[in-house]
Design a protein around this nucleic acid. Sequence first.
DNA 1: GTCCGTTATATCTTTGCAAATATAGCGGTA
DNA 2: TACCGCTATATTTGCAAAGATATAACGGAC
Lengths: 112, 112
Amino acid sequence: MEYKIKSRIWIEADNHVLLGEGRVRLLRTINETGSLTKAAKRLEMSYKKAWTLIDAVNKSAKKPVVITSIGGQGGGGAKVTEHGLKLIQVFEEINKNCWNHLDEQLDKIKTL
Amino acid sequence: MEYKIKSRIWIEADNHVLLGEGRVRLLRTINETGSLTKAAKRLEMSYKKAWTLIDAVNKSAKKPVVITSIGGQGGGGAKVTEHGLKLIQVFEEINKNCWNHLDEQLDKIKTL
DNA sequence: GTCCGTTATATCTTTGCAAATATAGCGGTA
DNA sequence: TACCGCTATATTTGCAAAGATATAACGGAC
């Protein structure tokens, strides 16, 4: 019998969700594509969903995480700020540590 | 700005969910009440939901976690096995450790 | 001033999941 | 054998979250 311990973590700021796995994945894809539309397509979600998520992130964070621009060459775009990049990095570090920490406790279950 | 890191952990056995927070809470209440019906009422969930959860737990575990009986004095009942009690204990220990581990990493975010 | 690809937002539709409802069967007691 | 409270299971209903669709506005390039 193969056991696994899985987890989902998220960060809240003032009792509002700031970052979770889905939001971080979206932020990384925006950073790679420079566009909300392209990121949504690549992740196979609707533009609306992507926009709603990013809007929530920006409203929960103390500094902007994504800066958007409308019009201009290319029609506009989205850019992840320095603060946003740091948030992504810290989230993934904490998440990885959490996984490792849980894996270390696996044999407590295996030996039952 | 007040930051929190929250988490949800669950245990899988052979790629099926065995235990999560909700199931553990239900198991504890069954252990206290001796009945699925009473536990469901106390937790304000439908009997069906409780039964479905317990059925899934029993099917995923290598040993029975809850033994039920139909008929007899009192109409029947449900009892958490020794194996079940150990599972609960281990789950809550791991969960608590996870929370502590995450709390230790909070200032990585606060200082951003 | 027209064209383009994007952000931004409203509205309608779908659909998947939760809740509610109904019913059967069990076994000890008296 | 009638009763009781529980387990077990099917069926229907309701609803909120997700998805699809439509449209407006923006601003640089040409």
